[in-house]
Amino acid sequence: MTIRHISAAVFAAAGLSATMPVAAQADELVLYCSVQEEWCRAMSEAFQRETGINVLMTRRSSGETYAQIAAEREQPRGDVWWGGTGDPHLQAAQEGLTAEYRSPMLDQMQDWSVRQAETSGYRTVGIYAGGLGFGYNSDLVTENPPACWADLLDPRFEDDVQVANPNSSGTSYTMLATMVQLMGEDEAFQYLAQLHNNISQYTQSGSAPIRAAATGETAIGIVFMHDAVAQTVQGAPIVAVAPCEGTGYEVGSMSIIEGGPNPEAARAFYDWALTPAAQEIGATANSFQIPSNINSATPEAAPRLEEITLIDYDFALYGSSEERTRLLQRWDAEIGSLPQ
C-alpha cells in the first residue's frame, strides 16, 4: 500500500466521474413517469418504436418526482414529466419548474384537460381523469355493502378502513379536498375525525389501501376508482364504489420540464402522448383511467365519469400551494394527532 496505490484508486474513482456522459446525447428523451410502472414501460417502448428516440424512463410517485424536479432546478436532467395527480403538476407550474407549451393537439382534448392547461398557463395538460371512490373486499364484506361516504362510519368497519396520509399521497389529498368541497370545511373535518375510529392505518402510497383490501389485510380502501377496478380485473375480490353523495376526481397531467436537455424530443413526446393511439396503451397495461383525447376509446372496464355524481372540483384553489399547506396543517392538528 503506497501513495501510488492510493492515488491510483482515487484517480480511478474520479476518472469515472469525469468520463461518465452527463449531458444527454442526441435522439434521447429522459422521461419522468408517475403512473404504474407497467403503463410507463409500455409508453416508453411504444414511443421508442414509433420515433426511434431512445427513452430513458424513471418511475416515481408524483410527490417524489416533484421533489426531484425542484432539487434539479439549477440544471434539469429530465425532459418530460408524464402522469400523476394534477396538484403537484400545478404546483410545479406555479413555481416555474415546467415550461409553457401549446400543443397542436389541444383542440382534441376534453374540457377538463384544457381547463387544467389554462389553470397552469399552458405549463401542463390533462392526460387522463379518474373519480375518487372506494373499494371493498367482497369476501370480507358479504352483506349490506357500503355505498356512501356516510356508510364508512359504520362501527362494523372498525379498524377495517384504510386511506393514505394526505401529506404523502395525492390521492388522499384529493379526498381531503373533496370532503371540504362536498360538506364544508368544518363538517369535513368532523367527518374525518369520526372516520378515524375505523381507520386501521394511514398508508404512505395512495393506492396501497386497495392492495391491502385485495389481499384481505383490510376490508375497505379509499382510492381512485380506476385503481380499485385494476384489482378487480386482476382477479381480486374487489368491488369499486362511487359514493352516493358525490365525489371528486383527479386530472392526471403531463408537463415539459423547463430547461430540460432535449426540448425537441420532449415536444415530440408531448404531442404523441396526446394522440388516441398513445392514450389507448393504458388499457393494455391494466390502467383504467379515462383518456383526455376526445377520440380515444375509453377502456371498457373504466368507471365512467358521467355515471358518477361529480362535484365541481376547484383545481385552481386546491392545487395552490397556500391552500394545500393550510389544509394539511389542519389535518395534522385535528386528525393526524388523534390516538390510533
Binding site: 410517485s61 410527490g63 417524489e64 416533484y66 421533489a67 425542484a70 396538484d87 403537484p88 396520509n165 394526505p166 401529506n167 404523502s168 399521497s169 395525492g170 389529498y173 392505518q201 394511514y202 404512505q204 394545500r324 399547506t325 394539511l328 390510533q340
Partner: peptide, 18 residues
C-alpha cells in the same frame, strides 16, 4: 401508525408538502 424519524424525513422531502 408507528412513525419514525427516517420515514417522516422522507415524506417531508418527497411528500405532497415538500
Amino acid at each position: 401508525g408507528y412513525e419514525v424519524l427516517s420515514v417522516k424525513i422522507f415524506f417531508a422531502v418527497v411528500g405532497a408538502r415538500y
